[in-house]
Simulated scan of single mutants.
Amino acid sequence: MKVAIVTGASSGIGQSAAIRIAERGTGVILTYGRNRLGAEDAAAAIEKEGGTAVALHLDLGDSAGFDAFRESVAEALRTIWSRDTFDHLVNNAGIAQTSLIEDTEEEDFDRLMRVLLKGPYFLTQRLLPLMADGGSVVNVSSSAATATSGLEPGYGAYAAMKGGLSVLTRYMAKEFSPRGIRVNAVSPGATRTRLGDDAFTRFPEVVPAIAAKTAFGRVGEPDDVGSLIATLVGDESRWITAQDIEVSGGYQL
Protein backbone atom coordinates (compact mmCIF):
# COMPACT_ATOMS: atom_id res chain seq x y z
CA MET A 1 0.00 0.00 0.00
CA LYS A 2 1.20 3.50 -0.84
CA VAL A 3 1.30 6.09 1.93
CA ALA A 4 0.80 9.86 1.82
CA ILE A 5 1.54 12.55 4.39
CA VAL A 6 -0.92 15.45 4.39
CA THR A 7 -0.06 18.39 6.64
CA GLY A 8 -2.80 20.51 8.16
CA ALA A 9 -5.40 17.79 7.63
CA SER A 10 -7.61 18.49 10.63
CA SER A 11 -10.02 20.57 8.53
CA GLY A 12 -10.57 22.28 5.20
CA ILE A 13 -8.50 21.51 2.12
CA GLY A 14 -6.09 19.23 3.96
CA GLN A 15 -8.85 17.10 5.43
CA SER A 16 -10.56 16.82 2.05
CA ALA A 17 -7.28 15.87 0.36
CA ALA A 18 -6.57 13.21 2.98
CA ILE A 19 -10.00 11.64 2.56
CA ARG A 20 -9.88 11.73 -1.25
CA ILE A 21 -6.39 10.25 -1.29
CA ALA A 22 -7.49 7.49 1.07
CA GLU A 23 -10.43 6.68 -1.19
CA ARG A 24 -7.85 5.68 -3.80
CA GLY A 25 -6.46 2.98 -1.52
CA THR A 26 -3.55 4.99 -0.14
CA GLY A 27 -2.69 5.05 3.56
CA VAL A 28 -2.59 8.54 5.07
CA ILE A 29 -0.60 10.23 7.81
CA LEU A 30 -2.55 13.35 8.77
CA THR A 31 -0.92 16.15 10.72
CA TYR A 32 -2.55 18.71 12.99
CA GLY A 33 -1.40 21.75 14.90
CA ARG A 34 -4.00 22.71 17.51
CA ASN A 35 -7.05 20.83 16.22
CA ARG A 36 -6.24 17.30 17.32
CA LEU A 37 -9.89 16.26 17.44
CA GLY A 38 -10.44 17.29 13.82
CA ALA A 39 -7.50 15.20 12.63
CA GLU A 40 -8.56 12.19 14.68
CA ASP A 41 -12.10 12.49 13.35
CA ALA A 42 -10.75 12.55 9.78
CA ALA A 43 -8.60 9.49 10.47
CA ALA A 44 -11.61 7.70 11.97
CA ALA A 45 -13.73 8.57 8.93
CA ILE A 46 -11.06 7.11 6.65
CA GLU A 47 -10.85 3.92 8.68
CA LYS A 48 -14.63 3.60 8.76
CA GLU A 49 -14.54 3.38 4.96
CA GLY A 50 -11.89 0.66 5.06
CA GLY A 51 -8.81 2.88 4.77
CA THR A 52 -5.81 3.26 7.02
CA ALA A 53 -4.83 6.52 8.67
CA VAL A 54 -3.01 7.97 11.66
CA ALA A 55 -2.93 11.52 13.05
CA LEU A 56 0.38 13.04 14.20
CA HIS A 57 1.10 16.43 15.73
CA LEU A 58 3.26 18.87 13.76
CA ASP A 59 4.05 22.52 14.44
CA LEU A 60 5.02 23.70 10.97
CA GLY A 61 6.28 26.99 12.38
CA ASP A 62 8.92 25.26 14.53
CA SER A 63 11.53 23.60 12.33
CA ALA A 64 13.42 22.46 15.43
CA GLY A 65 10.75 19.79 15.84
CA PHE A 66 11.02 18.37 12.33
CA ASP A 67 13.57 15.67 13.17
CA ALA A 68 11.33 14.34 15.95
CA PHE A 69 8.37 14.42 13.55
CA ARG A 70 10.38 12.41 11.02
CA GLU A 71 11.00 9.77 13.70
CA SER A 72 7.28 9.65 14.44
CA VAL A 73 6.59 9.16 10.73
CA ALA A 74 9.19 6.39 10.52
CA GLU A 75 7.61 4.66 13.52
CA ALA A 76 4.12 4.91 12.02
CA LEU A 77 5.35 3.52 8.71
CA ARG A 78 6.94 0.52 10.44
CA THR A 79 4.12 -0.31 12.82
CA ILE A 80 1.08 0.41 10.64
CA TRP A 81 2.23 -0.25 7.08
CA SER A 82 5.36 -2.40 7.57
CA ARG A 83 7.31 0.04 5.40
CA ASP A 84 10.32 2.28 5.82
CA THR A 85 9.29 4.81 3.14
CA PHE A 86 6.25 6.84 2.12
CA ASP A 87 5.19 7.97 -1.36
CA HIS A 88 3.47 11.36 -1.34
CA LEU A 89 3.80 14.60 0.60
CA VAL A 90 1.11 17.29 0.58
CA ASN A 91 2.42 20.54 2.06
CA ASN A 92 -0.94 22.05 2.92
CA ALA A 93 -0.76 23.38 6.49
CA GLY A 94 -0.85 27.14 6.68
CA ILE A 95 -2.04 30.31 8.35
CA ALA A 96 -3.47 33.56 7.01
CA GLN A 97 -3.13 37.09 8.28
CA THR A 98 -3.76 40.35 6.51
CA SER A 99 -2.40 43.85 7.05
CA LEU A 100 -1.34 46.72 4.87
CA ILE A 101 2.41 46.85 4.26
CA GLU A 102 2.67 50.07 6.26
CA ASP A 103 0.99 48.40 9.24
CA THR A 104 2.71 44.98 9.19
CA GLU A 105 4.59 44.01 12.33
CA GLU A 106 7.92 42.27 11.76
CA GLU A 107 6.89 39.52 14.17
CA ASP A 108 3.78 38.78 12.09
CA PHE A 109 5.82 38.79 8.88
CA ASP A 110 8.28 36.30 10.38
CA ARG A 111 5.46 34.05 11.56
CA LEU A 112 3.98 33.91 8.08
CA MET A 113 7.41 33.16 6.66
CA ARG A 114 8.08 30.33 9.14
CA VAL A 115 4.79 28.57 8.44
CA LEU A 116 4.19 29.26 4.75
CA LEU A 117 7.68 29.08 3.26
CA LYS A 118 10.40 27.98 5.66
CA GLY A 119 8.19 25.23 7.05
CA PRO A 120 7.46 23.44 3.76
CA TYR A 121 11.07 23.96 2.63
CA PHE A 122 12.72 22.30 5.60
CA LEU A 123 9.98 19.75 6.30
CA THR A 124 10.37 18.45 2.76
CA GLN A 125 14.14 18.42 3.23
CA ARG A 126 13.87 16.38 6.44
CA LEU A 127 11.38 13.91 4.98
CA LEU A 128 13.18 13.30 1.66
CA PRO A 129 15.26 10.39 3.05
CA LEU A 130 12.01 8.59 3.85
CA MET A 131 10.34 9.31 0.50
CA ALA A 132 10.26 6.52 -2.06
CA ASP A 133 11.57 7.13 -5.55
CA GLY A 134 8.75 7.78 -7.99
CA GLY A 135 6.68 9.61 -5.39
CA SER A 136 5.21 13.10 -5.51
CA VAL A 137 4.95 16.40 -3.65
CA VAL A 138 2.04 18.84 -3.82
CA ASN A 139 2.53 22.32 -2.37
CA VAL A 140 -0.59 24.34 -1.58
CA SER A 141 0.09 27.90 -2.71
CA SER A 142 -2.54 30.58 -3.34
CA SER A 143 -4.13 32.47 -6.20
CA ALA A 144 -3.22 35.59 -4.21
CA ALA A 145 0.29 35.05 -5.59
CA THR A 146 -0.72 34.81 -9.25
CA ALA A 147 -0.73 37.70 -11.69
CA THR A 148 -4.24 36.95 -12.94
CA SER A 149 -6.11 36.91 -9.65
CA GLY A 150 -6.19 40.64 -9.00
CA LEU A 151 -4.55 42.26 -6.00
CA GLU A 152 -6.33 42.80 -2.70
CA PRO A 153 -4.67 45.27 -0.30
CA GLY A 154 -3.50 43.61 2.89
CA TYR A 155 -2.31 40.35 1.40
CA GLY A 156 1.25 41.50 0.56
CA ALA A 157 3.16 39.43 3.12
CA TYR A 158 0.92 36.35 2.76
CA ALA A 159 1.07 36.43 -1.05
CA ALA A 160 4.84 36.96 -1.02
CA MET A 161 5.31 33.76 0.97
CA LYS A 162 2.92 31.81 -1.24
CA GLY A 163 4.67 33.19 -4.32
CA GLY A 164 7.94 31.94 -2.89
CA LEU A 165 6.38 28.51 -2.43
CA SER A 166 5.28 28.48 -6.07
CA VAL A 167 8.83 29.27 -7.21
CA LEU A 168 10.21 26.67 -4.79
CA THR A 169 7.90 24.11 -6.41
CA ARG A 170 9.71 24.42 -9.72
CA TYR A 171 13.13 24.08 -8.10
CA MET A 172 11.99 21.05 -6.14
CA ALA A 173 10.69 19.51 -9.37
CA LYS A 174 14.08 20.06 -10.98
CA GLU A 175 16.18 18.78 -8.09
CA PHE A 176 14.00 15.77 -7.25
CA SER A 177 13.49 14.62 -10.85
CA PRO A 178 16.50 12.23 -10.87
CA ARG A 179 14.57 10.19 -8.30
CA GLY A 180 11.39 10.30 -10.36
CA ILE A 181 9.65 12.49 -7.77
CA ARG A 182 7.06 14.86 -9.27
CA VAL A 183 6.42 18.23 -7.62
CA ASN A 184 3.44 20.45 -8.37
CA ALA A 185 1.54 23.27 -6.70
CA VAL A 186 -2.13 24.10 -6.48
CA SER A 187 -3.22 27.70 -5.94
CA PRO A 188 -6.72 27.90 -4.47
CA GLY A 189 -8.82 31.01 -4.80
CA ALA A 190 -11.22 32.09 -2.05
CA THR A 191 -12.18 28.82 -0.36
CA ARG A 192 -14.46 28.19 2.61
CA THR A 193 -11.91 26.98 5.18
CA ARG A 194 -10.94 27.81 8.77
CA LEU A 195 -8.12 30.12 7.67
CA GLY A 196 -8.15 33.60 9.14
CA ASP A 197 -9.93 32.33 12.26
CA ASP A 198 -12.93 31.09 10.27
CA ALA A 199 -13.15 34.36 8.36
CA PHE A 200 -16.06 33.28 6.15
CA THR A 201 -18.07 32.26 9.20
CA ARG A 202 -17.29 35.47 11.06
CA PHE A 203 -17.83 37.75 8.07
CA PRO A 204 -20.52 36.12 5.89
CA GLU A 205 -21.24 39.47 4.26
CA VAL A 206 -18.04 39.18 2.15
CA VAL A 207 -19.18 35.98 0.43
CA PRO A 208 -21.59 37.50 -2.16
CA ALA A 209 -18.97 40.01 -3.35
CA ILE A 210 -16.36 37.27 -3.81
CA ALA A 211 -18.84 34.97 -5.52
CA ALA A 212 -19.78 37.76 -7.94
CA LYS A 213 -16.17 37.91 -9.15
CA THR A 214 -16.07 34.17 -9.82
CA ALA A 215 -17.09 32.68 -13.15
CA PHE A 216 -19.20 30.01 -11.46
CA GLY A 217 -20.85 32.43 -9.04
CA ARG A 218 -19.76 30.91 -5.74
CA VAL A 219 -16.78 30.62 -3.41
CA GLY A 220 -14.70 27.49 -3.40
CA GLU A 221 -15.27 24.52 -1.12
CA PRO A 222 -12.46 22.38 0.36
CA ASP A 223 -13.36 19.41 -1.82
CA ASP A 224 -12.90 21.51 -4.97
CA VAL A 225 -9.20 21.61 -4.13
CA GLY A 226 -8.81 18.35 -2.23
CA SER A 227 -10.04 16.33 -5.20
CA LEU A 228 -7.41 17.90 -7.45
CA ILE A 229 -4.65 17.20 -4.93
CA ALA A 230 -5.69 13.55 -4.88
CA THR A 231 -5.52 13.51 -8.67
CA LEU A 232 -2.04 15.06 -8.69
CA VAL A 233 -0.63 12.39 -6.41
CA GLY A 234 -2.35 9.69 -8.46
CA ASP A 235 -0.74 7.70 -11.24
CA GLU A 236 -2.85 9.45 -13.89
CA SER A 237 -0.72 12.56 -13.23
CA ARG A 238 2.56 10.72 -13.73
CA TRP A 239 3.61 13.06 -16.60
CA ILE A 240 2.87 16.30 -14.76
CA THR A 241 5.55 18.14 -12.80
CA ALA A 242 6.68 21.70 -12.04
CA GLN A 243 3.15 23.05 -12.57
CA ASP A 244 1.17 25.56 -10.50
CA ILE A 245 -2.54 25.00 -11.09
CA GLU A 246 -4.96 27.73 -10.07
CA VAL A 247 -8.14 26.33 -8.50
CA SER A 248 -10.39 29.35 -8.24
CA GLY A 249 -13.49 28.66 -10.31
CA GLY A 250 -12.47 31.39 -12.74
CA TYR A 251 -11.90 34.20 -10.26
CA GLN A 252 -11.62 37.56 -12.06
CA LEU A 253 -12.22 35.79 -15.38
Score class of each variant (00 low, 15 high):
2 K>M: 11
2 K>S: 15
3 V>S: 01
4 A>C: 12
5 I>D: 00
6 V>D: 05
13 I>A: 08
14 G>Q: 05
16 S>W: 01
18 A>D: 05
22 A>I: 11
23 E>A: 15
29 I>F: 03
34 R>T: 12
40 E>Y: 09
40 E>T: 11
41 D>W: 06
43 A>L: 13
44 A>N: 10
45 A>E: 10
46 I>H: 13
47 E>Q: 15
49 E>F: 07
50 G>P: 08
51 G>S: 14
53 A>R: 02
54 V>H: 02
55 A>R: 02
56 L>T: 01
61 G>C: 12
63 S>A: 14
64 A>F: 07
66 F>W: 09
70 R>H: 05
71 E>C: 03
72 S>F: 00
72 S>L: 05
73 V>S: 04
74 A>S: 13
75 E>I: 06
76 A>K: 09
78 R>L: 05
78 R>M: 04
85 T>H: 12
87 D>H: 12
88 H>V: 02
88 H>E: 10
89 L>T: 00
89 L>V: 07
89 L>W: 02
92 N>R: 08
96 A>Y: 15
98 T>E: 13
101 I>M: 14
102 E>S: 14
106 E>D: 09
107 E>S: 15
110 D>R: 14
113 M>P: 02
114 R>C: 10
114 R>K: 15
115 V>H: 06
118 K>H: 02
118 K>G: 01
119 G>Y: 03
121 Y>C: 07
128 L>G: 03
131 M>I: 07
134 G>M: 13
135 G>M: 02
137 V>G: 00
138 V>T: 06
138 V>C: 07
139 N>G: 10
142 S>F: 06
143 S>D: 14
144 A>M: 08
146 T>E: 09
147 A>F: 07
148 T>C: 04
149 S>L: 05
159 A>N: 10
159 A>I: 14
160 A>G: 10
161 M>K: 01
167 V>S: 15
170 R>C: 03
170 R>E: 12
172 M>I: 01
172 M>W: 09
175 E>T: 04
175 E>S: 11
176 F>S: 01
177 S>V: 03
177 S>L: 04
178 P>E: 01
179 R>W: 02
180 G>F: 01
182 R>L: 00
183 V>R: 01
183 V>L: 01
184 N>H: 01
185 A>Q: 02
186 V>W: 00
187 S>F: 01
187 S>W: 01
187 S>I: 05
189 G>P: 03
190 A>D: 05
191 T>E: 09
193 T>P: 08
193 T>Q: 08
195 L>V: 08
195 L>C: 08
196 G>M: 10
196 G>V: 10
196 G>K: 09
199 A>C: 10
201 T>Q: 06
201 T>H: 06
202 R>P: 01
203 F>M: 15
204 P>V: 09
205 E>F: 07
207 V>G: 08
208 P>V: 14
209 A>S: 15
210 I>R: 13
212 A>V: 04
214 T>G: 06
214 T>N: 13
215 A>N: 13
216 F>S: 11
219 V>Y: 14
220 G>Q: 10
221 E>L: 14
222 P>Y: 06
223 D>K: 08
224 D>I: 07
230 A>Q: 05
230 A>E: 05
232 L>C: 11
233 V>G: 03
233 V>K: 02
234 G>S: 15
237 S>M: 10
239 W>I: 03
241 T>M: 00
244 D>R: 08
245 I>P: 00
247 V>C: 06
250 G>S: 11
250 G>W: 14
252 Q>G: 08
252 Q>L: 12
252 Q>W: 11
